[in-house]
Protein backbone atom coordinates (compact mmCIF):
# COMPACT_ATOMS: atom_id res chain seq x y z
CA UNK A 1 0.00 0.00 0.00
CA UNK A 2 1.44 3.36 -1.00
CA UNK A 3 0.39 6.55 0.66
CA UNK A 4 0.43 9.59 -1.60
CA UNK A 5 3.41 11.78 -0.76
CA UNK A 6 1.34 14.83 0.04
CA UNK A 7 -0.78 12.89 2.53
CA UNK A 8 2.34 11.66 4.26
CA UNK A 9 3.67 15.20 4.43
CA UNK A 10 0.46 16.61 5.88
CA UNK A 11 0.30 13.83 8.47
CA UNK A 12 3.82 14.67 9.59
CA UNK A 13 3.13 18.40 9.70
CA UNK A 14 -0.37 18.05 11.10
CA UNK A 15 0.08 17.97 14.88
CA UNK A 16 2.48 20.90 15.01
CA UNK A 17 0.50 22.87 12.47
CA UNK A 18 -2.74 22.32 14.36
CA UNK A 19 -1.30 23.55 17.64
CA UNK A 20 0.46 26.50 16.08
CA UNK A 21 -2.62 27.53 14.14
CA UNK A 22 -5.00 27.13 17.07
CA UNK A 23 -2.91 29.00 19.61
CA UNK A 24 -0.76 31.36 17.56
CA UNK A 25 -1.69 32.14 14.01
CA UNK A 26 -5.48 32.21 14.20
CA UNK A 27 -5.59 34.34 17.40
CA UNK A 28 -3.02 36.72 15.94
CA UNK A 29 -4.98 37.22 12.74
CA UNK A 30 -8.24 37.37 14.69
CA UNK A 31 -6.79 40.13 16.85
CA UNK A 32 -5.91 42.21 13.81
CA UNK A 33 -9.40 41.54 12.43
CA UNK A 34 -11.15 42.50 15.67
CA UNK A 35 -9.20 45.75 15.71
CA UNK A 36 -11.34 46.84 12.76
CA UNK A 37 -14.62 46.44 14.73
CA UNK A 38 -16.13 48.18 17.71
CA UNK A 39 -16.17 46.46 21.09
CA UNK A 40 -19.31 44.32 21.34
CA UNK A 41 -21.62 44.90 24.34
CA UNK A 42 -24.69 42.90 25.42
CA UNK A 43 -26.90 45.55 23.86
CA UNK A 44 -24.88 46.42 20.80
CA UNK A 45 -23.04 43.80 18.69
CA UNK A 46 -19.71 44.68 17.09
CA UNK A 47 -19.91 46.83 13.99
CA UNK A 48 -17.23 47.46 11.40
CA UNK A 49 -15.51 50.77 12.15
CA UNK A 50 -12.48 50.61 9.85
CA UNK A 51 -9.44 52.33 11.30
CA UNK A 52 -11.42 54.25 13.93
CA UNK A 53 -9.82 52.28 16.77
CA UNK A 54 -6.37 53.32 15.54
CA UNK A 55 -7.55 56.91 15.18
CA UNK A 56 -8.75 56.82 18.78
CA UNK A 57 -5.31 55.57 19.85
CA UNK A 58 -3.65 58.48 18.11
CA UNK A 59 -5.70 60.84 20.26
CA UNK A 60 -5.10 58.89 23.47
CA UNK A 61 -2.38 60.63 25.53
CA UNK A 62 -1.86 57.52 27.70
CA UNK A 63 -1.09 55.50 24.58
CA UNK A 64 1.58 58.01 23.59
CA UNK A 65 2.98 58.01 27.07
CA UNK A 66 3.07 54.19 27.13
CA UNK A 67 4.81 54.14 23.75
CA UNK A 68 7.35 56.73 24.90
CA UNK A 69 7.91 54.90 28.19
CA UNK A 70 8.43 51.69 26.27
CA UNK A 71 11.03 53.24 24.00
CA UNK A 72 12.88 54.60 27.04
CA UNK A 73 12.55 51.20 28.66
CA UNK A 74 14.01 49.46 25.59
CA UNK A 75 16.82 51.99 25.20
CA UNK A 76 17.68 51.65 28.86
CA UNK A 77 17.49 47.89 29.25
CA UNK A 78 18.72 46.47 25.93
CA UNK A 79 22.24 47.97 25.67
CA UNK A 80 22.71 47.70 29.42
CA UNK A 81 21.78 44.04 29.69
CA UNK A 82 23.88 43.15 26.62
CA UNK A 83 26.93 45.00 27.89
CA UNK A 84 26.56 43.49 31.34
CA UNK A 85 26.05 40.01 29.87
CA UNK A 86 29.22 40.34 27.79
CA UNK A 87 31.22 41.68 30.72
CA UNK A 88 30.08 38.85 32.99
CA UNK A 89 30.75 36.25 30.29
CA UNK A 90 34.27 37.57 29.67
CA UNK A 91 34.88 37.54 33.38
CA UNK A 92 33.71 34.00 34.14
CA UNK A 93 35.31 32.69 30.93
CA UNK A 94 38.75 33.47 32.34
CA UNK A 95 40.70 31.23 34.63
CA UNK A 96 39.54 32.37 38.00
CA UNK A 97 38.83 30.63 41.27
CA UNK A 98 35.25 29.65 41.91
CA UNK A 99 34.07 30.52 38.44
CA UNK A 100 31.39 27.83 38.53
CA UNK A 101 29.92 29.51 41.59
CA UNK A 102 30.06 32.85 39.78
CA UNK A 103 28.33 31.45 36.72
CA UNK A 104 25.58 30.00 38.89
CA UNK A 105 25.20 33.29 40.74
CA UNK A 106 24.91 35.27 37.51
CA UNK A 107 22.44 32.80 36.05
CA UNK A 108 20.17 32.53 39.11
CA UNK A 109 17.95 35.55 38.29
CA UNK A 110 17.06 33.87 35.00
CA UNK A 111 15.73 30.80 36.76
CA UNK A 112 13.51 32.72 39.15
CA UNK A 113 9.91 33.32 38.03
CA UNK A 114 9.24 36.98 37.25
CA UNK A 115 6.55 37.17 39.96
CA UNK A 116 9.04 35.98 42.57
CA UNK A 117 11.56 38.49 41.26
CA UNK A 118 8.96 41.24 41.60
CA UNK A 119 8.29 40.32 45.22
CA UNK A 120 12.01 40.19 45.93
CA UNK A 121 12.51 43.66 44.51
CA UNK A 122 9.47 44.99 46.36
CA UNK A 123 11.49 44.31 49.50
CA UNK A 124 14.64 45.84 48.01
CA UNK A 125 12.76 49.00 47.06
CA UNK A 126 10.79 49.37 50.29
CA UNK A 127 11.28 52.97 51.48
CA UNK A 128 13.45 53.46 54.55
CA UNK A 129 14.23 49.87 55.51
CA UNK A 130 14.58 48.19 52.06
CA UNK A 131 18.06 47.18 50.94
CA UNK A 132 18.41 49.97 48.38
CA UNK A 133 17.53 52.69 50.85
CA UNK A 134 19.84 51.25 53.48
CA UNK A 135 22.66 51.27 50.94
CA UNK A 136 22.02 54.82 49.74
CA UNK A 137 21.85 56.00 53.36
CA UNK A 138 25.08 54.23 54.26
CA UNK A 139 27.04 55.25 51.19
CA UNK A 140 25.50 58.56 50.14
CA UNK A 141 23.63 59.73 53.24
CA UNK A 142 20.30 59.97 51.40
CA UNK A 143 16.97 60.00 53.16
CA UNK A 144 14.20 57.50 52.41
CA UNK A 145 13.14 57.32 48.74
CA UNK A 146 9.91 55.86 47.43
CA UNK A 147 11.56 54.21 44.44
CA UNK A 148 8.51 52.65 42.84
CA UNK A 149 6.01 55.16 44.18
CA UNK A 150 7.34 58.37 42.65
CA UNK A 151 7.06 59.26 39.00
CA UNK A 152 10.72 60.22 38.59
CA UNK A 153 12.19 56.92 39.75
CA UNK A 154 9.52 54.30 39.03
CA UNK A 155 10.43 53.56 35.40
CA UNK A 156 14.14 53.42 36.22
CA UNK A 157 13.39 51.02 39.07
CA UNK A 158 11.51 48.74 36.67
CA UNK A 159 14.37 48.91 34.16
CA UNK A 160 16.90 47.89 36.80
CA UNK A 161 14.88 44.75 37.53
CA UNK A 162 14.68 43.85 33.83
CA UNK A 163 18.46 44.24 33.42
CA UNK A 164 19.11 42.21 36.57
CA UNK A 165 16.80 39.48 35.34
CA UNK A 166 18.02 39.27 31.75
CA UNK A 167 21.77 39.87 31.82
CA UNK A 168 22.48 36.44 33.34
CA UNK A 169 20.43 34.73 30.66
CA UNK A 170 22.25 36.49 27.84
CA UNK A 171 25.56 35.77 29.57
CA UNK A 172 25.03 32.07 28.93
CA UNK A 173 24.86 32.69 25.17
CA UNK A 174 27.99 34.83 25.24
CA UNK A 175 29.78 32.26 27.36
CA UNK A 176 28.96 29.51 24.88
CA UNK A 177 30.10 31.70 21.98
CA UNK A 178 33.33 32.65 23.74
CA UNK A 179 34.16 29.02 24.35
CA UNK A 180 33.59 28.26 20.68
CA UNK A 181 36.37 30.68 19.65
CA UNK A 182 39.50 28.61 18.97
CA UNK A 183 42.24 29.62 21.44
CA UNK A 184 44.78 29.57 18.61
CA UNK A 185 43.08 32.65 17.09
CA UNK A 186 43.70 34.63 20.25
CA UNK A 187 47.24 33.27 20.49
CA UNK A 188 47.93 34.22 16.90
CA UNK A 189 46.58 37.71 17.53
CA UNK A 190 48.75 38.23 20.59
CA UNK A 191 51.78 36.85 18.77
CA UNK A 192 51.14 39.35 15.99
CA UNK A 193 51.50 42.14 18.52
CA UNK A 194 47.85 42.97 19.19
CA UNK A 195 47.13 44.40 22.64
CA UNK A 196 44.37 42.92 24.78
CA UNK A 197 42.05 45.75 23.82
CA UNK A 198 42.80 45.29 20.14
CA UNK A 199 42.21 41.55 20.39
CA UNK A 200 38.85 42.24 22.02
CA UNK A 201 37.70 44.80 19.43
CA UNK A 202 39.22 43.24 16.31
CA UNK A 203 38.88 39.52 17.01
CA UNK A 204 36.63 38.57 19.92
CA UNK A 205 33.81 41.04 19.35
CA UNK A 206 33.46 40.39 15.59
CA UNK A 207 33.43 36.66 16.22
CA UNK A 208 30.65 37.19 18.77
CA UNK A 209 28.64 39.08 16.11
CA UNK A 210 25.99 36.46 15.39
CA UNK A 211 25.45 35.95 19.12
CA UNK A 212 25.13 39.69 19.68
CA UNK A 213 22.55 39.96 16.91
CA UNK A 214 20.57 37.08 18.34
CA UNK A 215 20.71 38.54 21.83
CA UNK A 216 19.84 42.04 20.63
CA UNK A 217 16.72 40.86 18.82
CA UNK A 218 15.62 38.85 21.84
CA UNK A 219 16.37 41.68 24.25
CA UNK A 220 14.28 44.12 22.22
CA UNK A 221 11.37 41.69 22.03
CA UNK A 222 11.64 41.07 25.76
CA UNK A 223 11.65 44.78 26.50
CA UNK A 224 8.17 44.94 24.98
CA UNK A 225 7.00 41.61 26.28
CA UNK A 226 8.35 40.98 29.80
CA UNK A 227 6.16 43.17 32.00
CA UNK A 228 5.04 40.76 34.74
CA UNK A 229 7.00 42.65 37.37
CA UNK A 230 5.32 45.92 36.43
CA UNK A 231 1.88 44.37 36.73
CA UNK A 232 2.78 43.05 40.17
CA UNK A 233 4.62 46.11 41.48
CA UNK A 234 3.10 49.26 39.99
CA UNK A 235 0.37 48.24 37.55
CA UNK A 236 1.63 50.97 35.27
CA UNK A 237 1.50 53.66 37.95
CA UNK A 238 2.11 56.05 39.47
CA UNK A 239 0.11 58.16 37.02
CA UNK A 240 1.16 55.92 34.11
CA UNK A 241 4.85 56.55 34.80
CA UNK A 242 5.59 52.86 34.26
CA UNK A 243 2.85 52.17 31.70
CA UNK A 244 4.31 50.22 28.77
CA UNK A 245 2.48 49.07 25.64
CA UNK A 246 1.99 45.62 27.12
CA UNK A 247 0.64 46.80 30.46
CA UNK A 248 -1.62 49.25 28.68
CA UNK A 249 -2.94 46.44 26.46
CA UNK A 250 -3.61 44.38 29.55
CA UNK A 251 -5.33 47.22 31.28
CA UNK A 252 -7.45 48.18 28.27
CA UNK A 253 -8.37 44.64 27.39
CA UNK A 254 -8.86 42.96 30.75
CA UNK A 255 -9.65 45.75 33.17
CA UNK A 256 -11.72 48.06 30.99
CA UNK A 257 -12.86 45.20 28.69
CA UNK A 258 -12.37 47.45 25.67
CA UNK A 259 -11.25 44.51 23.53
CA UNK A 260 -11.35 46.39 20.22
CA UNK A 261 -9.04 49.09 21.49
CA UNK A 262 -6.74 46.44 23.00
CA UNK A 263 -6.64 44.68 19.63
CA UNK A 264 -5.62 47.88 17.92
CA UNK A 265 -2.89 48.37 20.53
CA UNK A 266 -1.67 44.84 19.87
CA UNK A 267 -1.50 45.68 16.18
CA UNK A 268 0.70 48.67 16.97
CA UNK A 269 2.94 46.57 19.22
CA UNK A 270 3.41 43.94 16.52
CA UNK A 271 4.19 46.61 13.94
CA UNK A 272 6.79 48.23 16.22
CA UNK A 273 8.49 44.89 16.88
CA UNK A 274 8.47 43.93 13.22
CA UNK A 275 10.07 47.23 12.20
CA UNK A 276 12.76 47.01 14.87
CA UNK A 277 13.60 43.39 14.06
CA UNK A 278 13.82 44.21 10.34
CA UNK A 279 16.12 47.14 11.09
CA UNK A 280 18.33 45.05 13.32
CA UNK A 281 18.72 42.28 10.79
CA UNK A 282 19.42 44.62 7.91
CA UNK A 283 21.81 46.94 9.77
CA UNK A 284 23.61 44.55 12.10
CA UNK A 285 23.13 41.48 9.94
CA UNK A 286 25.07 42.95 7.04
CA UNK A 287 28.08 43.54 9.26
CA UNK A 288 27.84 40.24 11.07
CA UNK A 289 30.17 37.45 10.14
CA UNK A 290 28.65 33.98 10.27
CA UNK A 291 31.12 31.16 10.44
Amino acid sequence: MRMPRFLHAWLMLGPALLLLAAFTHVPALATLWHALFSTPTPRRPAVFVGLNNYAALAEDPIFWQALWNNLLYALGTVPMSIALALAMALWVNGRLRGRTAMRIAFFTPTVLPMIAVANLWLFFYTPDYGMIDRLTRLLLGWGPTNWIGSQETALGAMMAIAVWKEAGFFMIFYLAALQAIPPSLLEAASLEGASRGRIFWRVTLPLLGPTTLFIAVNAVINSFRLVDHILVMTQGGPDNATALLMTYIYETGFRFWDTAQASALTGVLLAVLAVIAALQFSLLGRRTHYR
Partner: peptide
Protein backbone atom coordinates in the same frame (compact mmCIF):
# COMPACT_ATOMS: atom_id res chain seq x y z
CA UNK B 1 54.76 39.72 20.52
CA UNK B 2 58.09 41.14 21.72
CA UNK B 3 60.19 38.06 21.01
CA UNK B 4 60.86 38.82 17.35
CA UNK B 5 59.19 35.75 15.96
CA UNK B 6 56.25 34.72 13.84
CA UNK B 7 54.29 31.51 13.99
CA UNK B 8 52.19 29.28 11.75
CA UNK B 9 49.63 27.26 13.67
CA UNK B 10 48.51 23.76 12.87
CA UNK B 11 44.96 25.01 12.33
CA UNK B 12 46.39 28.09 10.53
CA UNK B 13 44.48 30.33 13.00
CA UNK B 14 43.20 32.63 10.26
CA UNK B 15 40.66 35.22 11.37
CA UNK B 16 37.43 34.05 9.72
CA UNK B 17 35.84 37.51 9.69
Amino acid sequence: AARGLSMVFQSYALFPH
